[in-house]
Amino acid sequence: MTHSQLPNTLFPTGADRDLAETLSASARARTLLAAQSYDVVNAVARGDQVALEIKWSGTLAVGFGELPAGHVLRAHIAAFLDFRDGRIVAQRTYDCYEPLT
């Protein structure tokens, strides 16, 4: 499984991760966020591919830069998933964060 996160406000150069790195990043996020939610706005499937339009929000558990704990981050995400044998084998995300103020 690979996860490619295209460049965005939080990851200016983007990130390419294998499964172990993706799980590790997810574990780190759980220490930074008190809560997060995903609202799937739209989904389109064709063959072994799914495209998702997602509204995401995450509440900071700790301060992040100049943002205090409790601040809510918001992003609009386009995610593209590739499946093989019923499992996700690749994911690409385009995360558009709302202003970090």
Rank of each mutant, 00 (worst) to 15 (best):
D82W: 13
F64H: 12
L33Y: 05
H76M: 09
G14V: 00
S37Q: 15
A61F: 03
A15F: 05
V72Y: 01
D16T: 15
Y94W: 11
R17V: 04
P68G: 09
F80D: 07
E21N: 08
L60P: 00
T101G: 14
Q91K: 14
Q5N: 11
A20V: 11
P12D: 07
Q49F: 10
P12N: 10
Q91Y: 11
M1V: 14
L73G: 00
E66G: 15
G47N: 08
A90S: 08
S37C: 09
D48A: 15
Q5S: 12
A25G: 08
N42W: 07
L60M: 01
R87F: 09
H3P: 04
L81V: 09
F11Q: 14
R30I: 09
L73K: 01
V41I: 06
A51N: 07
Q49Y: 08
Q5W: 05
V41G: 02
F11M: 14
A25R: 03
A51G: 09
P7R: 01
A27H: 04
K55P: 03
A15N: 04
V62P: 04
F64C: 09
V40P: 00
T31P: 09
L23S: 07
Q49N: 10
A15K: 09
T13L: 13
S24F: 14
L73P: 00
I88N: 03
L10F: 12
A29M: 04
D39V: 00
P68A: 14
P99Q: 06
A27F: 06
Y94G: 07
R28M: 13
A69L: 02
F80R: 07
L32Q: 13
D16Q: 15
H76G: 10
A43S: 13
A34W: 08
R87L: 11
V62G: 06
G63L: 05
F80A: 08
A35I: 05
N8Y: 05
R17A: 03
S26D: 14
I88R: 03
V44E: 11
T9M: 11
A43L: 13
N8W: 05
G14D: 01
P99A: 06
A29C: 04
Y97K: 02
T9S: 13
G14E: 02
R92G: 01
A43H: 10
V89A: 10
R84E: 15
L81C: 09
E98A: 12
A27K: 08
A34P: 04
A15Y: 04
R74D: 03
T93F: 01
L19R: 12
Q36R: 05
G14Q: 00
G63C: 05
D85L: 03
Y94Q: 11
L60C: 00
T2N: 15
Y38E: 00
T101M: 12
M1Y: 13
E66V: 10
T101P: 13
D18S: 04
H3Q: 12
N42Y: 11
D85T: 05
T31A: 14
L10Q: 03
V62C: 08
T22L: 02
Y94D: 10
E66I: 11
E98Q: 12
A90C: 05
I88M: 07
Y97D: 02
G65T: 02
